[in-house]
Write a protein that binds this DNA or RNA. Structure first.
Lengths: 341, 341
DNA sequence: TGATTTCACGAAAACGATTAAGTACAGAGA
DNA sequence: TCTCTGTACTTAATCGTTTTCGTGAAATCA
């Protein structure tokens, strides 16, 4: 049961060879005889040998471990659904390539007040992926500027690799769809300040303009992402206007739930009285009645590409192309937007 | 920018003392002079010294790293919302205590086909938390039986510490509530086989019995957790019965969405024609209309306790009480259950 | 004053792996 | 026969810490 950990030395003794030979045999070096290799491997197996990651890391300066930094405004952490979809596919891809995933402490939950960079150095991460953080945080800046390979998600940083969801085209498609359904009085409950919000907001205005639609300032109100209560309030504000919108955009599918409740509480019907659209394309959006019109962000692809690119960068720090990869989303028309005459 | 990592040696040279002295100063040993300590710390700070986790781990046999094993039937990984709430609070508590979190590779996503235990030994995790896995997997068994400190969540294992949600009382409360609302024809779309399901199912039957209620076998059908499509099918099957139930229990809040759609597609109203209840108490359950009646599992507390207990066990392997901690949930009555005459 | 304790620090081994450099030996070529 | 070339190993240094055991010098005690 509680047997001591077996090391190369144990194997070397059992085989009557040096530890160097054992190491090389296990790593398939060419200067070890075939029979010896097989014998050593067999013994290693039967002894239940497992390499020691710490020792390997110390010697090789490689940990095969990737740090994940994720802190959002609400500190929702792993419960943030768009992010955990991205992270999940990131994790899968990383693991397929022999990397493990460790979190970089966020928030105030760190006892030994290490900065993000310190933490990354301490753990010796081969690379780091950053998502959804406050990009004005000087600590994030420090990490991004460091010599550690970095890939950022949904935010472009200096001359680093970034994987971003195509918010510009996504919002364009969504807006166009709504316009084509005949809506002209379109409101937008927008998320708080961030790169993502900026892209969407700019695209929203631009598309409206292209369609010759002009909306009053009061049609654009702010609510944090994933905040149903704030969306609820915002919706009430919009519906209280003397000329209320016929369609409301929400920061995301989840926040839209708050808006939907506000609408229904007034005895209004969706989409007959008010149309709504979300963003993200979480599974929930397709399970609501009426099914929500939204943009499905390809979180799977975003995570996979981020991992692939980061690993490329780790294995080839100088030769990897620094690029910003934009991942397209997909319009998913539901029944939440009414076609006007 | 790309400056070499600074080690104890660098500090020792800069200070004109031995590395031993530096190490002791930084670790606040008592046999180092106060002035020397301060000087060394100051130099360490200004040099930007960060300890090397690998070296520390190698020497001390402590990694301050906890392994997380989570594999569910659907391989939903991090996107499983009940679990990621638990994990999130686990993570926060662990980090407050100076531990990091690393995932133990699940599924087939491991290139160097290491077993869970091998992986844990390789990384030198100080402890491991196991949740939601297939408990019949021999690899899980191997890990649980090993000498690594283990805490399991929602499943009792041999003589290990377990933190489990109180499914027995939860389901009792829920069932009692529904009975007290006058329902007698109660159906249960139950989850697939697991400890959790067993507890709930047994409690469901027992409570019904106590209330003198007898339900036909057809009232209990199986659908995987979080599977809206399966819940949809199951619901249709139930409603097709010649004597359909007046209230339907679902495996969880999310799956309930599928049931709700099936009900509404038939033109039936919730709760007027059919009542529904969920389980979990995810935020979504309170944002739906009608608000869903459910049991709110205290995922926050479960995660925190699991982390606290595991860390206790790590720091005191012999002296920590092996126990099964049951965390109570809370009935959250919504408007999805109709009061019958 | 001589012996002993305390204080502050250093030397060196060790953790488990990797790897450059060296060595012994067999066979090939001249 | 002598040199040369592989082949198949071994030796030993090294990565960055921690920790045990010394060791001088100053302080205390008898």
């Amino acid at each position: 049961m509680a047997k001591r950990k077996v090391s190369l030395k144990d194997i070397s003794i059992a085989c009557g060879v040096s530890v160097a030979t054992v190491s090389k045999a296990l790593n398939d070096h060419h200067d070890i005889g075939q029979e010896t290799k097989e014998h050593i491997r067999h013994v290693a197996e039967s002894l239940g040998y497992r390499p020691n990651a710490a020792a390997q890391a110390l010697k090789t300066n490689r940990t095969n471990n990737i740090g994940v930094l994720f802190v959002d405004e609400a500190n929702s952490g792993l419960t943030h659904d768009y992010f955990n979809h991205v992270l999940n596919s990131f994790k899968n891809t990383a693991e397929e390539n022999g990397f493990d995933i460790t979190f970089i402490n966020g928030g105030k939950a760190r006892i030994n007040n290490m900065s993000y960079l310190s933490h990354a150095i301490y753990r010796g991460f081969d690379g780091v992926v950053i998502a959804c953080v406050d990009f004005f945080d000087p600590e994030v800046d420090e990490l991004v500027k460091s010599s550690i390979p970095v890939v950022t998600i949904d935010h472009i940083f200096y001359n680093r690799i970034a994987v971003i969801s195509d918010n510009v085209n996504g919002m364009r498609e969504l807006t166009e769809y709504v316009c084509n359904q005949g809506h002209r009085k379109i409101a937008y409950v927008r998320g708080v300040e961030s790169s993502v919000t900026q892209s969407r907001l700019a695209s929203f205005y631009k598309t409206l303009q292209e369609h010759g639609i002009d909306i009053p300032d009061e049609y654009v109100v702010i609510a944090p992402y994933r905040d149903t209560d704030a969306a609820y309030e915002a919706t009430n504000k919009l519906l209280d206007l003397q000329d209320p919108p016929t369609c409301i955009f929400y920061p995301d599918d989840f926040a839209a739930l708050g808006g939907i409740n506000a609408i229904r509480e007034r005895g209004l019907k969706i989409p007959d009285d008010v149309s709504v659209v979300g963003y993200d394309g979480l599974e929930i959006s397709s399970r609501l009645t009426p099914k929500m019109t939204t943009i499905v962000q390809d979180s799977e692809k975003i995570g996979t590409i981020a991992a692939t690119k980061l690993i490329d960068l780790i294995n080839n720090p100088k030769g990897t192309l620094i690029e910003q990869i934009v991942v397209k989303g997909k319009l998913e028309p539901g029944a939440s937007v009414k076609k006007l005459n």
